[in-house]
């Protein structure tokens, strides 16, 4: 298996690599969509009128309360039923985005709320509109503060791509490993279950451990450079929850 001269070497690792590419692709697409939609939700929540805010809060609470495996399964089962046929990768991305955009919305909102009030007041005082204030003053700073929490959420997204196993006919990293295991049991009579899962777990651990360290490093740099806003009590709590697994991160 680990010997390049082995006749299965290319096929096995090729299948795993293809699965890993699907996994990373799904994670990357999810991050992009979840960031855009999540930011829009956060902006809607902090800036809109009361009726709209109520709506946004309902959507956020609804999706936060659902298991992400259910949203993925929902996308994979219900979308084809109503006539939206997509490549399986997109069901995974849609399901993951539905869940993660509301988590990111909460992270961004906490970031905006952690900024000193003077920022908003000064922006209004120099004549910026509400939207300009958000776009030019608040969001850039909020993203900086919230970068560690956002990266921690990225770890969760990478892990959750493995839930693609509920989508029939989609081969992400874990599914690819399963196919390899089935092949070896069926065709060769060799049981590689433990070895394969250990290899898969190691890849995930390497990627996610690296991301976790990056988040810690950025957190440390932030609290050195911006002691005033880097660790406000509320933001710290939210960031800690993002990192150690609050409502979303486990």
């Amino acid at each position: 298996m680990f010997n390049p001269a082995n006749r299965f070497f290319v096929a096995t690792w090729g299948a795993l690599a293809a699965g890993l590419v699907n996994t990373l692709l799904a994670a990357a697409l999810t991050v992009v969509f979840a960031l855009v939609i999540g930011t829009a939700l956060a902006v809607a929540r902090v800036s809109s009128s009361r009726a709209y805010r109520w709506l946004v809060v309902s959507v956020i609470e609804l999706f936060r309360g659902l298991p992400v495996v259910i949203t993925i399964y929902f996308a994979a089962r219900v979308l084809p039923e109503v006539g939206v046929a997509l490549p399986p990768l997109w069901y995974l991305v849609i399901g993951l985005t539905a869940y993660n955009c509301v988590i990111i919305a909460e992270i961004v909102r906490a970031g905006i709320n952690a900024l000193p009030r003077g920022q908003t007041e000064a922006a209004y005082a120099v004549g910026l509109s509400r939207f300009q204030t958000l776009r030019l003053i608040l969001l850039p700073q909020a993203f900086r503060i919230m970068l560690p929490a956002l990266i921690s959420q990225l770890v969760v997204i990478v892990k959750d791509t493995s839930l693609g196993f509920v989508i029939f006919g989609f081969s992400e990293f874990v599914r690819a490993a399963n196919i390899v295991i089935q092949y070896f049991i069926g065709q060769e009579g060799i049981n590689l279950t433990l070895q394969m899962y250990v290899a898969v777990a190691l890849v995930f651990i390497l990627v996610n451990y690296g991301l976790g360290k990056l988040a810690e490093y950025i957190q440390a740099r932030l609290s050195r450079s911006r002691p005033d806003v880097a660790a406000p009590p509320g933001a710290e709590l939210t960031a800690a929850r993002g990192a150690t697994g609050g409502t979303g991160a486990v």
């Binding site: 399963n178 433990l194 899962y197």
Partner: peptide
Amino acid sequence: RNSPLVVVLFVFAFA
């Protein structure tokens, strides 16, 4: 913390 729950479950159930 860094492994997906799916992989953990596969290990417990099959490996």
